[in-house]
Simulated assay, not measured.
Amino acid sequence: MKKAIVLRSLGIGLLGFSLVFAQPLAADANRGGGDNPGQEKKNTSTEQRVNEQSERSVKNEQQKEDKEIAKEEQREIRDTYRQEKEQLNELKRESKEAYQAAKQQLKAEIQQHASTLELEGDLEGAFELESEAVKIDLKDRASYKRLGELYDKKNGNKGMKVFVNGTHPVFDVPPVIKSGRTLIPIRAVSEALNAEVDWNAEEQKVTIKRDGVTIELFLGENIAYIDGKEMILDVPAGLHNSRTVVPLRFISEALNSFVDWEPESGSVIIVDEVEIDEEDTTEDSNNDGENGDEV
């Protein structure tokens, strides 16, 4: 009997103990497993950031892909035009009249495409295509005018430009005007004309060689030599920003090159006579130095 009473008392005590400690544990469990607005908000914010980063990454990849596609399309267009120019050479041998008509048609097509690229904001692509159009008729002033305007627009500034066979050589220093004559960095233009340039610091002498012709100029002197024959210069060769500059017209003509000036775009035109045929010469471009322009 006593034993039963003791056990019953012990059971009641344990039950009470359980109730006392179970309530806080249940409350803790409810707090741990219940809603937590702050945590949910944090999770949502993290998920949004991940989504935004993913969207930006996809967008950047798409833009890169679009640019590559556009570049590839331009390469294909240029290749097509070059192939057509090769076909022109074949046609040229067959019929001079048909050749001239086809040449002008091709140039017009290229220039029209260049204008489209310009309207789309692709100034680099427009300039490259316009340069291809110029190479079809290397002495056409109107084409150089357009090319010079695109160059200024592409680079955001205006100034004198020099084009050699339809391309724009990279100059360390820009051309300069002295006594009404244009002086150019000799190395860039000579290399564009496939000429060799040598500098003798002791004699202060520039030597230019091309196709068996040797030209010698001395800094500060208005005397030059072509294959040993003395020539008088309007202005001497000199230094500009530590670069040797020489009279443009003298050096170009001494290397058997055509020189012209397009005043509206401020473009100097140099054409290697080896690159062109007599039929490519236009009446307008033959009026060298008209309107009093000097190069």
Rank of each mutant, 00 (worst) to 15 (best):
N222Q: 05
S190G: 12
T214N: 12
A188G: 14
G238C: 02
T244F: 09
V213F: 03
G220M: 01
V197W: 09
G212F: 01
V189R: 08
A201I: 09
R243K: 10
D234P: 05
T244K: 09
R187P: 05
V213G: 10
H240E: 07
A192M: 11
I208A: 03
F218W: 15
V246R: 06
N194Q: 15
E216Y: 02
S190W: 07
E196F: 03
N222Y: 00
P185Q: 12
R210N: 15
G180W: 00
T214D: 10
I208Y: 07
E196A: 12
T207V: 01
L183Y: 15
G212H: 02
I232A: 05
K229S: 07
V245I: 11
V246Y: 06
P247L: 07
R249F: 02
D198E: 12
K209C: 03
I184H: 09
K209Y: 04
M231E: 12
N200L: 00
V189E: 14
T214E: 14
V245G: 08
L217T: 04
E202Y: 08
I186K: 08
I215V: 09
H240F: 06
V197L: 11
E221G: 06
R187V: 13
L239A: 05
G180H: 01
N200Y: 05
V246W: 07
R181C: 01
V235C: 07
L183A: 14
L248H: 04
R210C: 14
A195S: 15
P236C: 03
A188R: 13
L217G: 02
N200F: 01
T244N: 12
E191H: 11
R249W: 01
F218V: 09
V246L: 07
S242T: 02
V246P: 11
E196W: 05
A188D: 15
N222G: 02
A195M: 14
I184S: 08
G212K: 04
E221N: 11
S242C: 00
L217N: 04
N241W: 02
A195Q: 13
D227K: 11
E202L: 08
V197H: 09
G212M: 05
V246M: 08
I186Q: 09
F218D: 10
V189Y: 13
I223F: 00
L233E: 09
P236L: 03
N200E: 02
K205G: 01
L219I: 13
R187E: 15
R187I: 08
V235S: 06
K229E: 00
P236Y: 03
A188L: 11
